[in-house]
C-alpha cells in the first residue's frame, strides 16, 4: 500500500494541518507521498520533504494550481490516485472542496472527516454533528478521505529526507477563476484552529457586551465564538456561531459565557479538551459537559478574570 497526501499551503509555506494529515496517513502505511500543487511553490516542496515520514514529494507547479481551484486540482489528483491505495487531504475548506470532486472523477465514494483509522479500509467518523460516531468500511479500490486534523497529532516538521520530483500534468479547465480573497486580519486566532475559544450566549444581552469578551480574549490569545441564540438575537454575525449548523471547534480550552447549552451548541464544542461554563443559572445544561463550572453573574466574573489574568 502507498498513500498520497494532498498538502495544504499558500504557495510560500506549508500549513500545519498537513502535518496532522501525515500522522493519520502513517497509521495506515509508512509509504507516504505528498502532493504539493501550486504556483511558484518550490519552497513548499522543500519544506514538505523535511517532514518526518514523507518518502517522496511531488511538486505540480503551474499557474493553473495557484489558487487550488477544485476544477483544476481534481483531475490532477484523479490522474495520480490510481498509483496509490489511499488519498488523504485535511478536512479543511480546501480539502473538502477538492477531494470529493476528485473522488467522483474516479467513481469513488469518499469518506469525510475521519477521526480514527481502524484498519486500511475501516474508519471512524462523526455524523449528526458529532452526536454519533460511525464506523464505516469502504469497498472502493482506492480510498479517498478527508481527515479531521484535531483528531491526529502533528508529524515532526523537521528531520525527514524525502525526495522531490516535479509532476508536470497540467489541467486548466478555464471555467473558474480566482477573483480575490479577504483573510481575517484580526490579531485574534481563527475560531476553528484557536487553542482557546471564549463564546458568548444570550446572557451577554447585547452586542456592546461582547466587547467585554473581546478584552478577555485578547488577554488569553483566544478566538471569540457565539451561540446560535446570540447570533439570532443579532449580537454578533453568524460567522462566529459555534454549533451544529455553525463552526465545529475543539480547542484546548473552551469558555462558555452566558450560554445555556442547547444541543445545537454542544454539538459544536463538546470535543474541546477543557470546558468552562460561566452562568448564573445553576440548572443550565452547559454545566453537565463542563469540567469547571462557575455559577455566577458573568458581568461580575468576566471583568474580574480580565483583571486577574
Amino acid at each position: 500500500m502507498s498513500i498520497l497526501v494532498i498538502a495544504e499551503h499558500d504557495n510560500s509555506h506549508l500549513k500545519a494541518v498537513t502535518l496532522n494529515t501525515i500522522t493519520a496517513a502513517l497509521t495506515i502505511d509508512s509509504d507516504i507521498t505528498l502532493l504539493v500543487a501550486g504556483a511558484n511553490c518550490s519552497g513548499v516542496g522543500s519544506e514538505a520533504a523535511a517532514i518526518q515520514g514523507v518518502g517522496k514529494v511531488l511538486v505540480a507547479d503551474n499557474e493553473a494550481y495557484g489558487y487550488r481551484l477544485a476544477e483544476n486540482l481534481a483531475p490532477l489528483i484523479a490522474e495520480l490516485a490510481p498509483g496509490y491505495s489511499h488519498v488523504l487531504a485535511p478536512a479543511t475548506t480546501t480539502g473538502k472542496n477538492i477531494l470529493p470532486r476528485a473522488a467522483a472523477l474516479l467513481d469513488v465514494q469518499p469518506i469525510s472527516d475521519v477521526i480514527a483509522v481502524e484498519g486500511a479500509d475501516t474508519f471512524k467518523r462523526p455524523i449528526y454533528a458529532g452526536n454519533v460516531i460511525a464506523t464505516v468500511k469502504s469497498s472502493d479500490a482506492i480510498k479517498l478521505m478527508t481527515v479531521r486534523t484535531t483528531a491526529f497529532d502533528a508529524a515532526p516538521a523537521e528531520g525527514g529526507s524525502g525526495s522531490i520530483e516535479s509532476f508536470d500534468s497540467v489541467y486548466n479547465q478555464g471555467n473558474s477563476a480566482f477573483d480575490g480573497e479577504e483573510l481575517a486580519a484580526s490579531e485574534r486566532p481563527e475560531l476553528t484552529s484557536a487553542k482557546i475559544v471564549i463564546s458568548g450566549g444570550r446572557g451577554l444581552a447585547s452586542s456592546e457586551n461582547f466587547k467585554m469578551l473581546e478584552r478577555l480574549a485578547d488577554k488569553l490569545g483566544a478566538a471569540i465564538g457565539a451561540s446560535r441564540a446570540a447570533v439570532d438575537a443579532g449580537f454578533v454575525s453568524n460567522d462566529m456561531q459555534v454549533g451544529q449548523t455553525g463552526k465545529i471547534v475543539a480547542p484546548d480550552l473552551y469558555i462558555a459565557v452566558g450560554i445555556s447549552g442547547a444541543i445545537q451548541h454542544l454539538a459544536g464544542m463538546k470535543d474541546s479538551k477543557i470546558i468552562v461554563a460561566i452562568n448564573k443559572d445553576e440548572e443550565a445544561p452547559i454545566f453537565q459537559v463542563a469540567d469547571y463550572g462557575l455559577v455566577a453573574d458573568l458581568f461580575d466574573v468576566i471583568p474580574e478574570m480580565e483583571e486577574k489574568l
Binding site: 454519533v132 460511525a134 464506523t135 464505516v136 468500511k137 454545566f287 459537559v289 463550572g293 462557575l294 486577574k308
Partner: peptide
C-alpha cells in the same frame, strides 16, 4: 461504504463547580 456500527461519542466525565474566579 458499509456502516459497521454506530456509537455515542465518548462521554465527558462530570466536572466540578468552582466557587470563585
Amino acid at each position: 461504504v458499509t456502516l459497521l456500527k454506530v456509537e455515542p461519542p465518548a462521554e465527558r466525565t462530570a466536572g466540578m463547580k468552582v466557587a470563585s474566579v
